[in-house]
Design a protein around this nucleic acid. Structure first.
Length: 286
DNA sequence: CCCGTCACGGTTGAC
DNA sequence: CTGTCAACCGTGACG
């Protein structure tokens, strides 16, 4: 970061009297990790996603040193509302982690009484299927047709109590998780030998100044870092070929046969490729 | 100038 | 497998 602490690059500010509209951000940056955007302070964020952990940690650490929130906001290029929120949460909970995103609360479809009966049936006859339990609840008069839980609800109760479904094991779930990991995280794509994740790659981007000057090359930086990993450092990436890696971004698929030392964009060598901090930090990380 | 608050557009994941 | 929806996110404007 070349800028002085507490200052904001003039080019990133809106003109006097002109504010950005609530919808539509001034700059959009496409990255393999999501749709990156630039805030008024010049910082990169992904709309709807939490800030990376190292930034959250830095916010709390700076506040701990008595640095004022407005200075933290400017230095880290994070909106003051966000700084305020993270510090408030830290004071309340003692944690810097974001809250649990997504999901919905489990619906109370079965009363505690009914749940107890389901548990009893299963304990008496472990081989019993959910639909059989449902029938028995009706037969024994525990529930009537309007109050009896659905088969899937009974499965859920059993899963919660016994740790897995009644009529199938949990390998499907594991497979599903594995597939998700492969599809959405760099970690998954690179395999276990190389522990890079969306969160862990952010420090390289920030530390190498990508948040401001090299902003438009974020995609390329990730590709360059990954290709360094693959071709120069002989990291064992069993789950991905060089070709697969470059197919990540259709716009750069034509580079798949290009030596990493000669990557160019519009006839110019990619600035980030020579960004020593990025490479140094990557090496330290490995 | 600083900071708490909240509408907004967005993502996520259990159901 | 897909859609729904309520949780969360950070930004940016307002007071």
């Amino acid at each position: 970061m070349a800028t002085l602490p507490g200052t904001v690059p003039r080019m990133m500010r809106p003109a006097p009297g002109q504010n950005y509209p609530r919808t539509g951000f001034p700059l959009e940056v496409s990255t393999p990790l999501g749709q990156g955007r630039v805030n008024q302070l010049g910082g990169v964020f992904i709309n709807g996603r939490p800030l990376p952990n190292h930034i959250r940690h830095k916010i709390v650490e700076m506040a701990h040193h008595g640095i004022r929130p407005c200075v933290i906001s400017r230095q880290l290029r994070v909106s003051h509302g966000c700084v305020s929120k993270i510090l408030c949460r830290y004071q309340e909970t003692g944690s810097i982690r974001p809250g649990a995103i997504g999901g919905s609360k489990p619906r109370q479809v079965a009363t505690p009484d009914v749940e107890k009966r389901i548990e009893e049936y299963k304990r008496e006859n472990p081989g019993m299927f959910s639909w059989e339990i449902r029938d028995k609840l009706l037969k024994d008069g525990v529930c009537d047709r309007s109050t009896v839980p659905s088969v899937s609800s009974i499965s859920r109760v059993l899963r919660a109590r016994f740790g897995k479904k009644d009529d199938e094991d949990d390998c499907d779930k594991k497979d599903e998780d594995g597939e998700k990991k492969t599809k959405h995280s760099i970690d998954g794509i690179l395999g276990d030998k190389c522990k890079l994740t969306a969160d862990s790659i952010w420090p390289f981007l920030y530390m190498s100044g990508i948040t401001n000057y090299h902003l438009h090359y974020t995609d390329i930086i990730i590709i360059v870092l990954l290709s360094l990993l693959l071709s120069s450092f002989k990291v064992n990436c069993s789950l991905v070929s060089r070709k697969q890696m470059f197919s990540f971004l259709p716009s750069t698929s034509s580079w798949e046969n290009c030596p990493t030392s000669e990557l160019q964009l519009n006839g110019e060598f990619i600035p980030a490729f020579n960004s020593e901090p990025a490479v140094v930090h990557l090496l330290n990380y490995l």
